[in-house]
Design a protein around this nucleic acid. Structure first.
Length: 419
DNA sequence: TCTGGGGTCCTAGGACCC
DNA sequence: TCTGGGGTCCTAGGACCC
């Protein structure tokens, strides 16, 4: 059996945890740059404001009735880690899936599943203060569906158990469910399935494996098999290391100046380097992309270029040098909306292989990066930056309604008290 | 005026090898 | 006149997830 634990309306719940006045109020959380709505409280959903709607397209009347928050990933990330910590103490195998979800592999356990689920829900509520729901079923795909079913329950704790793929209540549920609701079926596949007359999740799992492989791919065949109770998905996240890193941001306003773009690129290279070093990896290839706003009329420009690094590196300065050369090649006058740096061909970090004449240089550079990370961790990211970071940071994103980092920053606690 | 930021996997087709 | 059978690697594009 597998379980899926999901924090209910996670981002909105995190905001509420430290701002009780938001209890019962429609809360929406915005994407980076305050661009669109990416998370909603139950009250917000009840107003029929859809997921993903651009902030400026929210009906002004409704806009006055809701509270919007900029996203605060520092806060959400920290609370997510605390939830996982609580769970990890109680089950043998935890597979983090996203910031607000994790799977539990319960194979080999003999338990009263309802009791286990209720215990986990209560302990997260008590120790972190966040509401979670839990679905338990023979496969991960079914556990996802069971979780959705648990959320629909009005009784607490929100736990739903499907003991077997043949359970009558499960069969009845699948017969009412659109394939689109199944994990792994998106808009496109759903439309193609509908074209074949496959209109329910039950019909999907009854479609012969060979036909799914022939007309779609092995991926959809596996999904159908999971619906039938045969586990086919492994949590590759746990076993395989990350294969690429992308750091990008939309700008607060369009940018064409080469110097300002170079500043943004330095910033992204710093973040990318830190991600690499945190995972003890090094990159062999680096790419930069630059694009104008795709939502605007007029010519859309998207430029991207890759280059191989002379040797695998996790050194921020080396990454930045290569990235800046790419930017110089890509840049043409235009009103850019977004810039990003990508790292690929990642390998575990080991003794650096460098040029013959470097001597002690690699070891010194490694020590420099260690000191770099330590200083930024201790004194903040502004304490040490690669080249000038303009004070007004014209390229930085909008974040007009951000809450305090209550759990990770001492200097933001007074803000919390003053409220 | 204002539309996010990350990731993964699979397939088809081309180029190349013996 | 006859034109095999088996591979690998790479890339672009499509699809999905949160």
């Amino acid at each position: 059996m597998f379980a899926l634990i999901d924090c209910n309306n996670f981002y909105a719940a995190c905001e509420r945890l430290f701002e009780p006045r938001l209890e019962g109020v429609p809360v929406g959380v915005l994407s980076n740059n305050d661009g669109c709505v990416i998370a909603r409280s139950e009250e917000f959903k009840a107003l029929d404001i859809p997921m993903g709607i651009p902030t400026h397209k929210i009906d002004p009347t409704l806009r006055r009735r809701v509270v919007l928050k900029s996203s605060n990933y520092t806060l959400y990330g920290d609370l997510s880690a605390r939830v996982q910590q609580v769970l990890a103490h109680q089950v043998p195998t935890l597979e983090p899936y996203s910031i607000d979800e994790c799977f539990l592999d319960l194979r080999g356990l003999q338990e009263d599943w309802h009791a286990l689920g209720a215990r986990l829900v209560r302990s997260v509520a008590r120790e972190v203060g966040l509401p979670v729901s839990i679905g338990i079923a023979p496969t991960r795909t079914l556990a996802k569906l069971a979780n959705r079913q648990a959320k629909a329950q009005s009784t607490r704790p929100q736990v739903c158990v499907w003991q077997s793929a043949n359970a009558p209540e499960l069969a009845a549920h699948l017969a009412r469910l659109s394939p689109r609701e199944v994990w792994g079926v998106g808009e496109r596949l759903n439309a193609r399935l509908a074209g074949m007359g496959v209109l329910t999740a039950a019909a999907l799992r009854e479609t012969p494996d060979s036909e799914l492989r022939r007309r779609f791919s092995v991926v959809l065949a596996r999904t159908a098999s999971e619906l039938n109770g045969h586990p086919c998905l492994s949590m590759s996240d746990l076993e395989t290391p990350r294969r690429s890193i992308l750091c990008s941001r939309s700008f607060g306003r369009p940018l064409s100046d080469h110097a300002a773009l170079a500043g943004a690129l330095r910033h992204h290279c710093q973040r990318a380097g830190e991600k690499l070093r945190r995972d003890a990896m090094q990159a062999s290839a680096i790419g930069v992309y630059l694009r104008t706003n795709p939502h605007h009329t007029g010519t859309f420009r998207h430029a991207c270029e890759w280059t191989a690094l002379p040797f695998p590196s996790a050194d921020t300065q080396q990454l930045n040098r290569a990235a800046q050369r790419l930017l110089a090649r890509l840049w043409q006058p235009a009103a850019y909306q977004k810039l990003g740096v990508m790292l690929a061909e990642l390998t575990p970090r080991q003794q650096s292989q460098t040029t013959l004449f470097d001597g002690a240089e690699p070891a010194r550079r490694e020590a420099l990066m260690e000191a770099w990370d330590a200083i930024r961790a201790r004194y903040g990211r502004q304490a040490l930056t690669l080249g000038p970071q303009p004070g007004d940071a014209s390229w930085q994103m909008n974040s007009a309604y951000r809450s305090a980092c209550y759990t990770t920053r001492w200097d933001e606690l007074p803000r919390a008290r003053a409220r």
